[in-house]
Design a protein around this nucleic acid. Structure first.
Lengths: 333, 333
DNA sequence: CTGAAAGCGCTAACAT
DNA sequence: ATGTTAGCGCTTTCAG
């Protein structure tokens, strides 16, 4: 069964390709008889339009593309679930594109090229963490884009306030009377990681507490930017070997907290731990955490994008979700 | 910055579009001077080939498409990590397509249409669970496809023996002397779920033990086919309310086991539990499980697909991975 | 209501 | 070494 085209159908049905195209596209003003005949032949031949030809001809792809740097990551997965569920309300297909670069510069070019290639009708960028100047360049391509987990004044974006989230975690520890509060961070070059470190320091300063750099720890494995169980495990192991170990610990992500918890268990140590994200599993293992409404973020961003695509002169909006402290057993020590 | 085409470059550089095309595609036999000029203009204009036009013209897309029914699922995520990492070795881009259908029939049509549309040069199908007859139809489209987590004699596929995996879990329980062994299953219509139930029954029969249908339990929430924490939680809750509760429990997936563990904790019950998959987190929470080499499966399948694309007359191979029992603390009671 | 023909942006013979 | 031209499969005027 070779690829069948409208030419095949036209010949077989004894009409012109224009007519075939018309019935396939359900345009009106077609004799009922012709339509039926064409449809029948199309079905027999197992016809389906070629995406590339169609896209080229009408300059419309019916595709929404999600662009992400790292696919196998819990944060992304949950955001994606929201996108996916919301997308069922539209007639667009969803494509996920993985930008694989390491350096920030080449990542930008990769992203820009995706836009230039004209893959989709609209784009959702998750955690690509580009600079404003770069984003500015992208806007020149004049494509609907909604940013998730990063923001920029001139673009649609949905984020959650990282510093506020950390603040809430720290406030809890501080109010509970802890003084040596550690933080398990991730890759230094990661923007959310950086923001969380900043939030940590600020919270300490606000409370007139000293910042002990030794207590800001990360593991050695930087797979997935350090947002991994392994990294958290390593970090906590190091923390517990300090001459003066911490009394409490805030983690940049739930997944690292999971690793940290294991390290603690192995050493027989029990200190309160708060994670970040509130991935589904956290509820089941009793991990206290800062909840980011990941699913809602994905859903909201998708809605925004679709609106933007309908009405291109909508003013860009920035939606900031508020993170919340969720207390579970990992803070009961 | 409107879309720039080779026509723009040709005009600006004072050459023909063919020449532009040649230098963009690095074909040889081009005067160094012309090349430089063209490249310069292309750069100034921020040129990048249009994917659809290029794809249409050369009938080659440089895309590998991963087709999955459910995106936000741990099994898929880990397989995907393997695919993603392996793909960095090739010059293809990765696209993920989510088939969103509920009924088996319409799912098949969705999948077939993807093929017909001609998106990619090769496809990786993960857990689509089609019937042989349907797969047979797909083969007529003559596109390189590798199946993951399902198999069919005429296609490249990589699977893991589900029954064998369950057998190992059951053997462990049986040898440890347990008699009332429950199983937490997932959606009945899911193929892997079914296979695992079969394995469970077989193992019992082999050991001359009665099969108590009451002990094959699933939760009410069927989100993600029942492969969720919630489902496991519900199932275990029901199990523990039985007049004669089980002494041990095998779960269809680690993620369900996580839920089951929570239910046990809440009721203050401790029975040994074995999950299925060995997702990364299991190691950190001490969950005994049947390990499926998900990452390796993704990697292996990707390699196969790429080979197949190089050499289309390769004989289809079926690679079956062997699941292994991994004992951790959840079986120490 | 239907057909002819131009065009979407690019590639690949075929010329020169 | 470079230009001309005919497609790739489909949509969309413009005629009739």
């Amino acid at each position: 069964m070779a690829k069948t085209t409208i030419y095949d159908i036209a010949k077989e049905a004894g009409v012109s390709i224009a007519t075939v195209s018309r019935v396939i596209n359900k345009s009106e003003g077609i004799a009922d008889k012709t339509r039926k005949k064409v449809l029948k032949v199309a079905d027999e031949l197992g016809y389906h339009p070629q995406a590339y030809a169609q896209g080229l001809a009408r300059n419309k792809k019916n595709i929404i593309m999600v662009v992400v740097p790292v696919l196998s990551n819990y944060f992304f997965m949950e955001v994606l679930a929201g996108i996916q569920d919301e997308m069922t309300n539209y007639k667009y297909d969803l494509n996920i594109f993985n930008v694989g670069s390491n350096s920030e510069e080449s990542m930008f070019h990769e992203v820009e090229n995706i836009l230039k290639r004209g893959w989709a009708d609209g784009y959702l960028f998750i955690s690509t963490h580009m600079q404003e100047q770069q984003l500015e360049k992208l806007k020149r391509h004049d494509m609907p884009i909604t940013l998730i987990d990063e923001s920029f004044s001139g673009s649609d974006s949905v984020t959650v306030n990282n510093e506020e989230g950390v603040q809430k975690a720290m406030d809890y520890f501080l109010e509970s009377g802890y003084e040596r509060i550690a933080m398990i961070s991730a890759m230094k070059s990661s923007k959310p990681s950086k923001q969380r470190i900043d939030g940590y320091k600020k919270a300490l300063k606000k409370a007139d507490m000293p910042v002990d750099e030794q207590l800001i720890m990360t593991g050695d494995s930087m797979y997935r930017d350090g947002f991994s169980e392994e990294n958290g495990y390593e970090a906590m192991s190091k923390l517990l070997e300090l001459p003066n170990p911490p009394e409490a610990c805030f983690c940049s992500s739930d997944i690292q907290a999971v690793g940290a918890l294991k390290a603690m268990k192995e050493k027989g140590v029990e200190i309160p731990v708060i994670g970040y994200d509130d991935i589904t599993i956290s509820n089941y293992i009793g991990l206290s955490t800062i909840r980011q409404p990941m699913y809602d973020m994905g859903m909201y961003a998708t809605k925004r994008l679709m609106n933007k695509m309908k009405n291109s002169k909508l003013t860009p909006t920035h939606k900031e979700f508020t993170p919340e402290l969720v207390l579970r057993s990992s803070t009961d020590v």
